[in-house]
């Protein structure tokens, strides 16, 4: 029984960074911009939050700085893919690589140690706040997409940017805002890695969680609440895998690798239409230029 409640608690904790990042990814992708850079944005957020918390002794200020770091990286991404019309996949991969290299580099610059920040003391860490915050963000995203004109515009920017433009709303401006917001949210997700799930920044600490958030987003068919629930499901797989590590069953170790690959396998099945059908926003990944830019 204790094991089950422990498993549930750790499921909720582990799904928190995924939820933030998946909501960020949702905003960006629904507006028509593929966001493979989530992983890199999270890394920046994780470093920013750890540095901020070490400097200010407040995880809340740390979170703010982490969100700022995600925002800064997302700005570069948006600049490349919106006005400069870079390929979104290529630019996203480049952002990930840059973040992976830049974070240990900055650590060494700031603290003289390779790849990690000083430990954040227990009272300065987050204990449960991000858990609630994540679900508040989900609620806000749901409300935004369902009941506000801004959500409608966002959806149109990703489905029929021409129609949005014809209605007098600049599609690319909506995409800019959506990508920047995704940087803030993925940054917050990263912040929970270094100040909530652990007590310092470590090299490559996102460890594929940005891609897992992307998988959850697709599994949830690009909708806020199903995507958040997919994050919980993947968080559960992660928690189970951690609890089963080294556990013997009838004398043999349980191969946790099969649990680890499960989220990715089910996402492929969904994408292939074997389990429901995931339909991406129509203009996802397509550059949009206004009539006079096309001249």
């Amino acid at each position: 029984m204790a094991m089950i409640s422990q498993l549930l608690a750790s499921t909720l904790r582990l799904s928190t960074p995924l939820i933030f990042a998946a909501m960020g990814g949702m905003l960006s992708e629904r507006s028509g911009v593929i966001n493979i850079a989530l992983e890199g944005l999270m890394l920046m957020g994780a470093l920013g939050a750890a540095v901020g918390t070490v400097a200010t002794h407040s995880p809340w200020l740390g979170l703010l700085i982490g969100m700022g770091a995600g925002l800064a990286m997302a700005f570069i991404y948006a600049l490349l893919v919106i006005p400069f019309r870079a390929n979104q996949i290529v630019a996203g991969m480049a952002i990930n690589m840059l973040a992976l290299g830049l974070t240990p580099f900055l650590c060494k610059m700031l603290y003289g140690v390779t790849g990690s920040t000083p430990q954040i003391s227990y009272p300065e860490q987050f204990h449960s706040a991000p858990l609630y915050l994540a679900w508040i963000v989900v609620g806000l995203c749901w409300y935004l997409m369902k009941f506000t004109p801004a959500g409608l515009w966002l959806g149109f920017a990703g489905e029929h940017p021409e129609a949005l433009e014809a209605a007098g709303i600049p599609a690319n401006r909506i995409r800019w805002l959506a990508v920047l917001a995704s940087g803030v949210l993925a940054g917050a997700g990263g912040a929970t890695l270094s100040t909530f799930l652990s007590s310092s920044f470590a090299r490559n600490m996102a460890a594929g969680r940005g891609f897992m958030a992307l998988a959850a987003l697709i599994f949830g068919k690009w909708r806020p609440i199903p995507a958040a629930l997919a994050c919980v499901l993947f968080g559960f797989a992660d928690a189970a895998q951690i609890q089963l590590q080294g556990v013997k069953f009838r004398g043999a170790e349980v191969p946790v690798q099969f649990i680890q690959i499960l989220p990715y396998l089910v996402t492929i099945l969904v994408l292939a239409g074997f389990v429901g059908r995931a339909r991406a926003p129509k203009a996802l990944g397509k550059h949009f230029s206004t009539a006079n830019e096309r001249e």
């Binding site: 992976l100 290299g101 830049l102 580099f105 390779t114």
Partner: peptide, 14 residues
């Protein structure tokens, strides 16, 4: 650190 190679690579791809 040697990770700086990723910075160079990332910038070149960008």
């Amino acid at each position: 650190t040697s990770e700086v190679s990723l910075v160079f690579q990332g910038l070149i791809i960008l």
